[in-house]
Amino acid sequence: MEYSFSKDDLAKIDEIKSRYPEVMPATLPVLWLAQDKFGHVNEEVQKLVAETLDLPVSHVHGVAEFYTQYYKKEMGKFVLDVCTCLSCHIGGGYDILKHLEKTLGIKAGGTTNDGLFSLQEVECLGACGYAPMMQINNDVFVNHLTPEKTDQVVEGLRKGKYPEFESIAMPLNPNTSASKETV
């Protein structure tokens, strides 16, 4: 695959650069831009980013390696990041992970043969009160998972139905109003 940035991308990259007094701080945002466009930031993409920003390839490589959200290789079309950290663990996060391993027929860290799903075990995503949960493609959170809900999400994705952002209502002071209500 030939990797390159379009004219629009380059304009966006110029805008990103203008936010900082130096070029280097653009590394993370431009890696994000590249990943959103190409689906991953493998070594070739890292090279493209380095050349575009006129930074050493070793620098961009080091950054891409350091941060877990950058995919250093091609991933499935849908990347399922299941949280098994503290609150999700005590809420059954590993049961969800195992359930997905079984239904998808892969181990955490793997990708299905049809290239549709990658499964990963991840650390706390900041949704501890809504455990167990997972994140899809570095984007929406799916909360309060049960095996049934997990199956529904997977089936939905197969049909191209991407879950929507779940707004969690702020539970209010139980003494001043009904317990769950949107602000």
Partner: peptide, 11 residues
């Protein structure tokens, strides 16, 4: 979070 009936953020 954890084993309570109504987990969440409370001010």
């Amino acid at each position: 979070s954890g084993h309570v009936n109504r987990p969440g953020v409370y001010e």
